[in-house]
Design a protein around this nucleic acid. Sequence first.
DNA 1: ATGATCCGCCGAACACCATTCGGCATAAAG
DNA 2: CTTTATGCCGAATGGTGTTCGGCGGATCAT
Lengths: 142, 142
Amino acid sequence: MDRKLLGLLAGDATLSYKEMGEQLHLSAPAVHERVKKLKKSGAIAGTVARLDGTAVGRPLCAFIHMDTEGWGKSPELLSIQEDSRIEEIHAVAGDTCVILKVRCESTKALEDILHRLYQVPGMIRTQSYIVLNTYLERGPGV
Amino acid sequence: MDRKLLGLLAGDATLSYKEMGEQLHLSAPAVHERVKKLKKSGAIAGTVARLDGTAVGRPLCAFIHMDTEGWGKSPELLSIQEDSRIEEIHAVAGDTCVILKVRCESTKALEDILHRLYQVPGMIRTQSYIVLNTYLERGPGV
DNA sequence: ATGATCCGCCGAACACCATTCGGCATAAAG
DNA sequence: CTTTATGCCGAATGGTGTTCGGCGGATCAT
């Protein structure tokens, strides 16, 4: 039941409690209580507006693999998250150390990002994958 | 001005128009009009709840690189997006063809996903990157 | 089996917010 | 100067979020 509710909210968080209640065969206050609990438990991390990268002037999306010597979330690496063009930073297992997802205004801006990445001490190399087309992009589902 | 507003909404879409208006030195109806235009123009693609993967029983996140022969968004490839564990599908330029972002319940489930991917005709190989830790994960920003 | 406790749900009520409307100011166009 | 369009504001209203009290079913101990 909670899973259905999470599925609804993950798809469109502007639904009213009444509308969700109809789909779940519940009353509005019942839905409200469940949502409140889900927020408190952390299952719902937040409610945000999904922006269109192109419409906000950032048509270029790319994944960047970073190879570093040693292992450590250096302050320099974590500080790059202040750059709003960086959307994701993951430490991964595989033939690279860190995967970044970035969204920027141009290839020139991407070069600027790469410049900054090479300021991080211990950086060995990067490998970039420019996305040509996005077929699917959504958050965690049910 | 619209950029500030988008920044606010991308961070927390539960803010009331009055609250946003105070931060932007605008009245509530003025904010409302701007938001309505931004939605109509497509800059705001939607308003959704951000779910916590771990809390919804999907603690394992991974990126999968797919190499295929030829080039084509085959119906088989696009049909895998019905699997809610698949969060993103991007065609990319680089030393692979397609990058997937998946979030699932276990390594066993990841193997199941890989099995399905190999049903796609023309699939040559995959390479998986299991994320060990996520330092940052957000949508398109200002 | 009986009683107590807890949990989740409902209906009603209230306060707040989203939304609309009319009007005003500014700026660009005729 | 007149006209038009745009963006904003204040007030009003319809709808929604939110709270409250009470009800019914489930669980457990006596």
